[in-house]
Computed example of a mutant assay.
Amino acid sequence: MSSFIVQGWRRLLKSLFPILILISFFTVLLVDSFTPAIAQIPRQEIRGVWMTNNDFDTLKSRDKVQDAVSQLRRLNFNTIYPVVWNSGYVMYPSAIAQRAGIQPFVYKGSDGHDILADLINQAHRKGLLVIPWFEFGFMAPPTSELAMNYPDWFTQKRDGSQTSISAAGEVMWLNPFHPQVQQFITNLVLETVTQYDADGIQFDDHMSLPHEFGYDQYTVALYTKETKNPPPTNSQDAAWVKWRADKITAFMVQLNQAVKQRKPQAIFSVSPNYYDFA
């Protein structure tokens, strides 16, 4: 009896095998083409790609963005980090930047469209997260409108010089301890997460400060007031380093809280800089 039942099941499975294959095939097709309306879904790991405007014009073309997103989906990536802040400019139409007298840089696509909105729309249709990338952090070139219009927003070295050489060339550094600088950065970030259906914010390792900086008038006065001592001549003095690092950390905590109040599920990510530089 048992042998008869086993043979019967084998014949049944054999006859159903082609049907099962077809069901599996169409299931794969459906899953591959399925694109959730909301890309903010739990991820066990992030497989991301930076999308820059340096030497690439991909972001300006709807067709190139579509091709890029499709290729990333095929290659099993799930996150895109498009640049939205570098060289002292934003890459989208920003009321905050315009009120500050900073003209838009490369914020329009080849047909006049909103680059960031187009990328987010196309990426979300393919199920990819989009986390705008504040590449330059506190850096800005000395020739930028930001540096020329707001000289008091920038810090300096002990010898009075204000620039350093980076991978982006010669740059100045916004004073991360200055309340107006903190408010400006906060406003830009909140504008981005509010104006766009972004899945979070990514800060580059330039949300830090080279250890030689912090000797501007504002910071010197603040340090002296809080510690009853002037800043030491040694820029790597442990207490002086810790005081500045703690101030930047406190600002980033406040910025994180502000973002989460606007968008509780937003990813807030900061890339650290190496210890003997920042």
Rank of each mutant, 00 (worst) to 15 (best):
S2L: 12
S3Q: 15
V6S: 09
G8T: 07
W9R: 04
L12K: 03
L13S: 03
L13G: 00
F17G: 01
P18H: 14
I19G: 07
I21D: 03
I23V: 12
F25V: 10
F25W: 15
F26L: 07
L29A: 06
L29E: 12
L29S: 06
L30S: 09
L30D: 07
V31D: 06
V31H: 08
S33N: 14
P42L: 12
P42I: 08
R43P: 00
Q44S: 15
I46D: 14
R47E: 11
R47S: 10
G48N: 05
V49S: 03
V49E: 07
W50T: 04
T52K: 04
T58Q: 04
K60E: 09
K60Y: 11
D63H: 11
D63W: 08
V65Y: 07
Q66R: 15
D67W: 13
D67F: 09
V69Y: 06
Q71C: 06
R74D: 14
F77L: 11
N78H: 11
I80M: 13
P82V: 06
V84E: 09
S87A: 14
S87K: 14
Y89V: 12
A95T: 10
Q103W: 08
V106R: 13
Y107S: 15
Y107E: 11
G109I: 13
G109Y: 15
G112K: 09
D114R: 13
L116E: 05
L116C: 06
L119F: 10
G127F: 10
V130D: 07
I131R: 01
P132H: 13
F134D: 01
F138S: 01
M139H: 07
L146W: 08
A147Q: 05
M148K: 13
D152R: 08
F154M: 10
F154P: 13
T155F: 09
D159K: 01
G160R: 09
A168G: 02
G169I: 03
E170C: 00
E170T: 05
V171H: 01
P176Q: 04
F177G: 00
H178T: 00
Q180H: 10
Q180G: 01
V181C: 08
V181G: 09
Q183L: 14
N187L: 04
L190A: 10
L190T: 12
L190Q: 11
E191D: 12
T192Y: 11
D197K: 15
I201K: 02
D204A: 05
H206R: 12
S208Y: 11
S208R: 11
L209R: 06
P210A: 05
E212S: 08
G214M: 02
D216A: 00
D216E: 01
Q217K: 10
Y218V: 00
A221I: 00
A221T: 05
A221R: 15
E226H: 01
E226C: 00
T227N: 11
N229V: 00
N229Y: 08
N229E: 12
T233M: 08
S235T: 07
W240K: 05
W243F: 14
A245E: 13
D246P: 02
T249Y: 14
T249A: 14
M252G: 03
V253T: 12
N256M: 09
Q257P: 01
R262Q: 10
Q265N: 07
S269I: 02
S269Q: 07
V270L: 13
P272S: 11
N273V: 06
D276V: 01
A278T: 06
